[in-house]
Amino acid sequence: MQGVVKVNSALNMRSGPGSNYGVIGTLRNNDKVEIIKEVDGWYEIRFNGKVGSASKSYITIVN
Rank of each mutant, 00 (worst) to 15 (best):
I61Q: 07
R14A: 04
S55W: 12
L27M: 06
S19Q: 13
D40K: 09
N20K: 10
K50M: 14
K56M: 11
M1E: 07
I36R: 03
G18A: 03
G18H: 03
K50T: 12
R14Q: 06
N12G: 11
E44N: 09
G16F: 02
S57F: 13
W42M: 02
S9G: 15
E44Q: 10
I59C: 04
N8M: 09
T26L: 13
Y21Q: 04
R46C: 12
G52Q: 02
E34V: 11
K6C: 14
Y21D: 05
I35R: 00
G25E: 12
N30C: 13
V62T: 11
V39H: 11
T60A: 11
D31H: 03
N20R: 10
K37H: 09
N48W: 06
V33L: 04
G49I: 03
K37D: 11
K56D: 05
F47C: 04
I45E: 00
N48F: 07
L11S: 05
V33Q: 00
I45F: 06
N8G: 12
V62D: 10
S55T: 09
A54G: 03
S15H: 05
K56I: 09
N63Q: 13
L11Y: 02
G52K: 01
G52P: 01
V7Y: 06
N29K: 09
N12M: 11
G49T: 05
N20F: 10
K32T: 12
V7C: 15
I45A: 01
G49Q: 06
T26W: 07
G16H: 02
R28A: 11
G18V: 00
N29Q: 08
M13V: 15
V23F: 04
S55G: 10
I59R: 00
G22V: 12
S19K: 14
V39R: 08
K32W: 12
V51M: 09
W42N: 01
N20T: 08
S15E: 11
T26N: 06
P17A: 06
L27N: 01
K6M: 09
S9C: 15
P17G: 04
G3N: 02
E38S: 07
K6R: 13
S9L: 11
K6E: 07
Y58D: 12
V7T: 14
N29G: 07
S53V: 12
S9Y: 10
M13D: 03
I24D: 02
K6D: 05
G22W: 06
G41S: 07
V4G: 02
A10P: 13
V5W: 00
D31W: 04
K32C: 13
G3S: 02
Y58A: 13
D31K: 01
G25N: 05
G49W: 02
T60Y: 12
E38Q: 07
R46P: 00
G22M: 12
N8V: 12
S19G: 11
V5M: 03
S19N: 14
F47T: 04
N48V: 05
N8P: 10
E38V: 08
A10R: 14
K56Q: 06
K32I: 15
W42E: 01
S53A: 14
A54M: 07
G18Q: 01
G52A: 07
P17C: 08
I24A: 03
A10H: 15
F47D: 01
V62M: 10
K50W: 08
V33F: 05
V33M: 03
I35Q: 01
K50D: 07
G25H: 07
R46G: 04
I35A: 00
E34W: 13
E44L: 14
K32Y: 12
Q2N: 10
I61L: 11
N8W: 05
W42D: 02
L11D: 03
D40E: 11
V39A: 08
R14I: 05
T26P: 05
E44D: 06
G25I: 09
F47N: 02
T60I: 14
W42L: 00
L27Y: 00
E44V: 15
K32R: 14
N8R: 12
I59T: 00
S53G: 09
N63T: 13
R28D: 07
K6A: 08
G25A: 13
R28L: 12
L27V: 05
K6P: 01
S19V: 14
E44M: 14
G49H: 05
K50F: 10
S9F: 12
Y58C: 14
I59G: 00
L11W: 00
S53N: 14
K37P: 01
G16S: 03
S57W: 12
N63A: 13
N12R: 12
V33C: 05
N30A: 08
Q2L: 14
G16N: 02
F47P: 01
K37S: 14
K32F: 12
G3H: 03
Y21I: 04
V23A: 05
N12A: 14
P17Y: 01
S57C: 14
N20Y: 10
M13H: 04
T60N: 11
K32E: 11
N29P: 11
M13G: 03
Q2M: 15
Y43F: 10
K50Y: 09
E34I: 11
T26K: 12
L11G: 07
T60Q: 14
V51C: 09
Y58G: 14
V51F: 09
S9P: 07
Q2S: 11
G16V: 02
N20W: 13
S9D: 14
V39G: 06
L27E: 01
A54D: 02
P17F: 05
G41R: 04
I24V: 12
A10N: 12
I61H: 05
V5T: 03
E38R: 03
V51K: 08
V5Q: 01
N8Y: 07
A54E: 02
W42F: 08
V33I: 07
E34G: 04
L27C: 05
G41Y: 05
N48H: 10
L27R: 00
G25V: 08
N48P: 03
V5C: 06
G41M: 07
S55H: 15
V4I: 14
S57K: 15
V7A: 12
S55R: 15
N8K: 15
G18F: 00
G25C: 13
G41P: 02
I61V: 12
I35Y: 01
E44W: 14
V4M: 09
M13P: 03
G52Y: 04
I59H: 01
A10M: 13
G22S: 13
A10L: 14
N29R: 08
Y21S: 05
M13E: 04
G41Q: 07
G49M: 05
K56T: 10
V23M: 04
N63G: 13
N29H: 10
G25W: 02
D31G: 02
R28Q: 13
S9A: 12
V33P: 01
D31M: 06
N29A: 09
N29W: 07
R28H: 14
Y21P: 03
Q2T: 13
V33D: 00
V62G: 07
N20H: 14
T26C: 13
G41N: 09
R14D: 03
V5I: 08
I45T: 00
K6L: 08
G3Q: 02
S19L: 15
S57T: 12
K56A: 12
D31R: 01
M1I: 13
Y58P: 04
R14K: 06
F47S: 05
V51D: 06
Y58V: 09
Y21W: 09
E38F: 05
V51W: 07
A10K: 14
V5A: 04
V39C: 10
E44F: 10
R46F: 11
N30S: 07
M1F: 11
E44P: 00
N29S: 08
V23K: 07
Y58W: 09
S57E: 15
N63M: 12
G41E: 10
M13R: 02
Y58L: 09
K37L: 09
V62I: 14
D40T: 05
G16P: 02
P17I: 04
K50P: 02
E44C: 15
D40Q: 08
N63Y: 10
K6T: 12
I59Q: 01
E34D: 11
R28N: 12
G16C: 07
V7K: 10
G22E: 15
I36K: 02
S55F: 11
L27F: 00
W42Q: 01
G3M: 04
I59F: 04
V4E: 06
R14H: 15
A10Y: 15
K37C: 13
M1R: 13
N12Y: 12
V39T: 11
I45K: 00
L11A: 12
D40R: 08
Y58N: 12
G18L: 01
S15D: 10
D31Y: 04
G25Q: 08
G41V: 04
N63S: 13
L11H: 06
G16M: 03
I35P: 00
I61R: 06
D31I: 05
I61E: 05
V51Y: 10
K50S: 09
V39D: 07
V33W: 02
M13A: 05
V5K: 02
N8Q: 12
N12F: 10
D40L: 08
S9N: 13
Y43P: 00
D31E: 08
R46D: 06
N48K: 12
N48I: 05
A54Q: 02
I61P: 09
N12V: 14
R46N: 10
E34M: 10
G41L: 06
